[in-house]
C-alpha cells in the first residue's frame, strides 16, 4: 500500500492540496452550499445527473475532435505549401508571429458572427483556432532537418516529393506531436468558449445556462468534467510527444 501511495502523493500533492483547500475553505467559511458547493457535492451532482451531462459532453467533444482534425489537416497542408515555396513561407510569417504574440481566442466572437449562430459554427471555430498551432509547428518542423541530411538527399538526386516524405515529414514528427498537444487544448477551449458565448449546445452552453439559473453545482460540474478531460488529453498527448521524440527526434 505504501509503495503505491508514496509515488501517488509525490506526483499529485499539488492538485490534491488544491481540492483539499477548496473543501476546507467552504466548510470553514460557513458559506451557503448553494453559493459555493464542496467538491463532493459537485461529484454527486455529476453522478446523479449523467443523462444531462453526457449528451452535452458528447456534443462538445465531437466539436473539439472534428475541429482538431480539420484544423490539423489545414495547418499541416499549409505548412507543406510553405515548405515547398520560400515566397509563401515569407508571406505567411505574419501569421506565425500573430499566433505567438496575439490572443487568438479573442477571434471567437468575430467568427461566431461571421458564420452565424448555427450548429456548424462551433466546429468551424475550433477548426480555425486549432489551425494556428498546427501551421506554426508543422512549418517549423519541416525545416528542422538533421544537419547534412538535405545535402545528402540532393546528392542522391531525390525528387521533391521523396525529400518531403522520406526526410522532412519524419523530421517534423516531434513538432507535429507538440502541435497536437497544444492543438488539443486549444480545440477544447475554443469549443467551450464558443458554446458559452453563443449559448447553443454542449457543455459550454450548459454552463452558461446553469450560471444564469444560479445553479452553481451544475456549472462547476461542467467545469470539473472539462478539467478532467483536458488533463487526460494533456497527459495522453505528452505520451505521444515522448514517443515521437524517442522515435524521430
Amino acid at each position: 500500500m505504501d509503495r503505491l501511495l508514496r509515488p501517488f502523493i509525490r506526483d499529485w500533492w499539488g492538485i490534491l492540496l488544491l481540492l483539499l483547500a477548496w473543501q476546507a475553505w467552504v466548510v470553514l467559511s460557513g458559506l451557503n452550499a448553494i453559493v459555493m458547493p464542496r467538491p463532493l457535492d459537485v461529484v454527486a451532482d455529476i453522478a446523479t445527473n449523467l443523462p444531462v451531462y453526457l449528451p452535452a459532453l458528447g456534443i462538445s467533444l465531437a466539436a473539439a475532435a472534428f475541429g482538431l482534425v480539420g484544423g490539423f489537416m489545414l495547418g499541416l497542408g499549409l505548412g507543406i505549401l510553405t515548405w515547398a515555396s520560400t515566397i509563401a513561407a515569407g508571406m505567411l510569417t505574419p501569421v506565425t508571429v500573430l499566433f505567438s504574440s496575439v490572443p487568438v481566442v479573442t477571434l471567437i466572437p468575430i467568427l461566431a458572427r461571421l458564420f452565424g449562430y448555427g450548429p456548424g459554427t462551433v466546429v468551424a471555430i475550433t477548426v480555425i483556432i486549432s489551425f494556428f498551432p498546427a501551421f506554426v509547428f508543422s512549418s517549423a518542423g519541416l525545416r528542422a532537418l538533421p544537419p547534412g541530411s538535405a545535402d545528402l538527399f540532393r546528392v542522391l538526386g531525390a525528387s521533391r516529393w521523396r525529400v518531403l516524405t522520406s526526410l522532412a515529414l519524419p523530421a517534423a514528427m516531434p513538432n507535429l506531436a507538440v502541435a497536437l498537444r497544444i492543438g488539443a487544448a486549444h480545440a477544447l477551449l475554443a469549443a467551450m468558449v464558443a458554446e458559452y458565448l453563443m449559448g447553443s449546445s454542449g457543455l459550454g452552453a450548459m454552463f452558461a445556462a446553469a450560471k444564469s439559473e444560479l445553479n452553481t453545482e451544475r456549472a462547476l460540474g461542467a467545469s470539473l468534467i472539462v478539467a478532467a478531460i483536458s488533463l487526460t488529453l494533456y497527459l495522453l498527448s505528452l505520451r505521444v510527444e515522448h514517443w515521437a521524440r524517442a522515435r524521430y527526434g
Partner: peptide, 22 residues
C-alpha cells in the same frame, strides 16, 4: 518537483473557461 509540475500542467491544461466559474 513532480507534484508541482503536475499542478502547473493541470492548471494550464484546464481551459480557462472551466476555471472561470470557480
Amino acid at each position: 518537483a513532480p507534484g508541482a509540475d503536475r499542478l502547473a500542467a493541470g492548471m494550464h491544461a484546464i481551459p480557462t473557461v472551466a476555471l472561470a466559474p470557480v
